[in-house]
């Protein structure tokens, strides 16, 4: 009896080792451990044995059953892992298909992106952002900004009027005046916004966007203006950029300058062996106008804000066109594209 048990154990263990599928193992389990199998029969027959044999035979048969169950389970577990992997491999999908659900693309307009980028540069330099009305008083748009009574910009051929003394602001500069009237120096602000001029051609739209900058304190200098605009140019157009100041004329600054940034599309005016199309071979690109705030501008507010006594404070101001910066930086060839809102244009900058 004990010998038979030992034989069964050896035989089944060998069969378990030889088994290659979980189905074979299941067959082995039924054949050797199932209800009608030999080993369970032996166990069931133990009670009929001679009492002296009952103990050893029952123990051996039980141990054999436990051992074989364990062997089959262990082998079964190893098969289950492998077969699961196999099933998973067969259960493959095409992962090159797009995600689901597809989200609609969206994006900020290039003008907003450019405006924010410039705003963030000046926020980092410690400037606040001021805003003001677009329907503006002639007094703030021209008079307080030292425009002579007959300055051509005042002409109805250049400026949109809403009434005798009310117009659509032609620049964001009137917000300089409005801000100084309510905020004593030191003052560091930029002013983004829509402005309007009666121009409509290949390079002008009657509505466009500007950012104005104003810094007023004791001892603010032209060199400070240069350093500030250099920091701006590097932030927007790249750290390798240089700027140069060219003397110019604006009614509300003295001295006045136009500011060029070194061309970022060529080397000294030459790109791919040809004259650079962006800077027209000059190696410089005009980006903005600036200057030291004219004392007459301070005088226009110092009646109400005596701290702006032109004898005490100095300041610089600058103004740039967002459209121009956006077009230069992103190679947009035509101003009209910015206002057409063609989705194929918009999604290029999303």
């Amino acid at each position: 009896m004990l010998e038979r048990i030992s034989q069964i154990v050896d035989e089944v263990k060998a069969a378990v080792v030889a088994a290659t599928t979980s189905a074979e193992l299941e067959e082995l389990r039924i054949k050797w451990l199932g209800r009608k199998a030999e080993l369970p029969n032996i166990l069931r027959g133990v009670k009929d044995l001679d009492p002296s044999e009952r103990g050893p035979a029952g123990k051996a048969a039980n141990e054999a059953r436990v051992e074989l169950e364990g062997a089959i389970d262990t082998k079964m577990a190893s098969f289950a892992g492998a077969e699961l992997e196999l099933r998973l491999v067969e259960d493959a999908v095409d992962i090159t298909l797009p995600g689901h659900p597809q989200q609609f693309p969206g994006g900020l307009h290039l003008l907003t992106q450019t405006m924010r980028e410039i705003e963030d540069v000046f926020l980092g330099l410690g400037y606040g952002i001021a805003e003001g009305p677009e329907v503006e008083l002639v007094a703030y748009n021209f008079d307080a900004l030292n425009h002579a009574p007959h300055h051509p910009a005042r002409s109805p051929s250049d400026t949109f009027y809403v009434g005798d003394s009310v117009l659509l602001r032609t620049h964001t500069s009137p917000v300089q005046v409005r801000t100084m009237l309510v905020t004593p120096p030191p003052l560091y602000v930029i002013v983004p916004g829509r402005v309007y001029r009666r121009d409509d051609d290949a390079t002008h739209t009657p509505q466009f966007h500007q950012i104005e900058g104003l810094a007023v304190d004791e001892g603010i200098s032209l060199a400070d203006l240069k350093g500030t605009l250099l920091a701006f140019a590097k932030a927007i157009f790249g750290d390798e950029r240089e700027i140069r100041l060219r003397p110019h004329f604006f009614p509300f600054t003295e001295p006045s300058v136009e500011v060029d940034v070194s061309c970022f599309a060529c080397n000294q005016g030459v790109a791919d062996g040809d004259r650079c199309g962006l800077c027209k071979g000059t190696a410089w690109i005009e980006i903005l106008g600036a200057g030291m705030v004219d004392p007459n501008v301070f005088a226009s507010v110092s009646g109400e804000q005596p701290a702006y006594d032109p004898g005490k404070v100095q300041g610089f101001a600058f103004g740039l066109g967002i459209e121009r910066i956006a077009m230069l930086k992103h190679s947009v060839p035509d101003l009209r594209l910015l206002y057409d809102n063609d989705i194929r244009f918009l999604e290029q900058f999303a």
Partner: peptide
């Protein structure tokens, strides 16, 4: 202005204002 433009703006240094209002935020 006459002095600045004839002496040459390229000779001018590039500095940043030294004061601040701490107002650099939205």
């Amino acid at each position: 202005e006459e002095i600045a433009r004839i002496d040459g703006l390229e000779k001018l240094g590039a500095t940043l204002p030294t004061s601040s209002t701490g107002g650099g935020r939205l």
